[in-house]
């Protein structure tokens, strides 16, 4: 089993350091902003000065996860769909407008996708396995698959999460890069996964990704059948915009994009919601269906033991 031991989300919701994120959720308007903790309480100023918002969010959420966990992480798996956009754009401007051969290097250095994972290893002085996955809307799901594989290989304390950031230029890239029916947001959600239960009760039971699915309903039913479950067993279904399956009246459904806003790794925040919902209710199964891009389907099943 893959128990979820600690969660830290920094999002447009009041989600950091709250015991039940479900009690705080509000639908986002067009003009919402990240509700950020005081990063200075987590990251020394010498490091913080170089960190763009997505790096601050990812690093701080990871530090919070480590603070709530006794053992050091023995693997770190990060998903990010578009990586460090702010530094990427900054460096594009730097070299496109350069008048001399001397260019400021910091934005370039901080622009690679694995700066998030790298800063986590540096910040935590962690020498373990450190992977960065990027696969559009299923970036978090593939990072989660890696994390579960690490547990199967014998790892005991795996940090998995995702981070993506909104920049104004992204709106110009719509709808070619991402859909445009929700406000663009930033978000980072990190989880500690362990094979040991101790005080945890909610597990990631299974996760899968499907590419070019022709029959989403069939894929989801098959995924559940592999777990000896049917849609009737699902008490909470989280989805992105449109629920691609028919559920019965007992199933609570929630369009997570209304709460996370739009960034491609928002299904990680949906997993935070699902976890807290199971933990604080008598529901047993929650399903996260992520088809933000129509050609890629992420399916994640959480269960309470």
């Amino acid at each position: 089993m893959y128990y979820i031991h600690s969660i830290a989300s920094i999002s447009h919701q009041d989600s950091f350091n709250v015991s039940n994120v479900c009690s705080k959720l509000e639908k986002l308007g067009q003009e919402s902003e990240v509700i950020a903790p005081n990063y200075k309480e987590y990251v020394p100023p010498a490091s913080l000065r170089r960190l763009s918002p997505v790096l601050r969010m990812g690093l701080t959420a990871s530090i919070e996860c480590q603070n709530n966990t006794e053992k050091e992480f023995d693997a770190i798996s990060v998903g990010t769909a578009l990586g460090c956009l702010r530094d990427t754009e900054k460096f594009l401007v730097t070299f496109h407008t350069a008048t001399s051969d001397f260019l400021s290097p910091t934005a370039f250095i901080q622009s690679t996708h694995n700066t998030i994972g790298g800063q986590i290893s540096l910040g935590l002085k962690n020498h373990a396995y450190n992977m960065t996955h990027t696969q559009n809307n299923v970036s978090f799901e593939v990072a989660l698959m890696d994390a579960l594989m690490c547990i199967d290989e014998g790892k005991k304390q795996v940090l998995v999460g995702s981070a993506d950031e909104q920049i104004p230029f992204l709106e110009l890239m719509q709808p070619n890069l991402i859909p445009d029916n929700y406000p663009l947001t930033s978000g980072a959600s990190f989880f500690v996964i362990s094979p040991e239960a101790s005080s945890a009760s909610v597990c990631v039971q299974a996760v899968a990704v499907r590419f070019n699915p022709t029959d989403k309903t069939g894929e989801i039913e098959q995924f559940l059948a592999n777990q000896q479950l049917t849609l009737n067993d699902i008490e909470l279904a989280l989805y992105a915009d449109q629920l691609p399956v028919e559920t019965n009246e007992k199933t609570e459904t929630l369009n997570f994009l209304e709460y996370s806003g739009l960034h491609y790794s928002a299904s990680a925040f949906a997993m935070h919601i699902a976890h807290d919902s199971l933990k604080h209710s008598d529901k047993r199964y929650a399903l996260i269906i992520n088809d933000m891009c129509s050609d890629k389907l992420g399916i994640t099943l959480l269960s309470k033991q």
Binding site: H113, Q135, M173
Partner: peptide, 27 residues
């Protein structure tokens, strides 16, 4: 539309006809 690193892998997979699993590592 070509910007995302993940998309470049999806395009390679499409060329080969592979669709069971696609993943991009960016380290």
């Amino acid at each position: 539309k070509h910007h995302s690193s993940g998309t470049s892998s999806e395009q390679i997979a499409q060329e080969l006809g592979i669709s069971d699993f696609v993943n991009t590592i960016s380290t």
